[in-house]
Design a protein around this nucleic acid. Sequence first.
DNA 1: TAGGCCATCTGGTCCT
DNA 2: AGGACCAGATGGCCTA
Length: 331
Amino acid sequence: MLTLPFDEPHMMCEPRFGADYPRDSLPESLEHERQRNADRPVMREAEDDISDREEDERDDDQDEEGLPKKRGPRKKKSGKEQDRSKLRRMEANARERSRMHGLNAALESLRKVVPCYSKTQKLSKIETLRLAKNYIWALSETLSAGKRPDLLAFVQTLCKGLSQPTTNLVAGCLQLNARNFLTDQNGEVMFPGRSPYDAMYSYPGTDMNTPPGHSSSTLDSGAKTFRHYSYSGAYEPYFENPSPESGSPHFDGQLSPPMNFNGIFSLKHEEPPDYGKGSHYGVRYCGAPGRTALAHNSMYRVSPEARFPYDLHVRSQSFQAQGEVNGSFHN
DNA sequence: TAGGCCATCTGGTCCT
DNA sequence: AGGACCAGATGGCCTA
């Protein structure tokens, strides 16, 4: 299912991939970080001294029964022993740094495969993990359901438990109205004021805004105030008419992995020739002129005018009639 | 300025 | 003994 470009195979299969990170071979960013922190040598030296002293003092604090030991004259470490201890500590620190760098690298690779990735507005570690968990959960649910996914439920699951800024970010990535995916304090997704369908599938002049079972009137009570997030409409084509006052984050890089809706959600790595070189994942926006993939392939055709920001395309070989698809979407 | 996030240091524990 | 892993402490940076 995950047809990802695991372009960092060492990240995926090496159990302790960060363990042997030689300091000399740190990635540029990490090396920069290392140099940045090398600006604090004075403190480190001082801490080393202190830790050595404390280490000595703690050595004989308690006996094997936890009772305080009698403190005799402390054995003074020789200069050689102190040096050796210092050296060991420094080596351990370096290893720990490398380990953490490896951990962060793995986290960074995770960031790139969850459905919301921005170079400029990185998800925090905890939010990355939460989103990843939600993503796995949503995919599992989709699989276990054995039917075509409900896009709305999928996104709701995705945003469960995420902080407001992250919800905004995800909504921004998916070009959805964040207000409709707010989560309450329990992590439950709320729909204050409007039907979620309103936001995602707006059909001006039609009465398709509120599908059965999604009456907005029942949701008003959950309304709460929101941080400024001003999509002027429920949905705006991302490339053609971005709202100038939009609170949507600015994305200058790859936004998220591709999500292809072909009955199930799936990740798919496919580098389209004309979409952003250097990006790992081919998120396709279909609002740009000349991009017609959605019109031909999307199972979630919204309307001829309103183009969903994602190219929700399907694999032709497994794709059934467009009418059936649209039917399942609008049921 | 408080709070969130992060990198790093550190000592303890477990494992080889 | 030494390395990996972990969690607590600390300080820096950034933002609301």
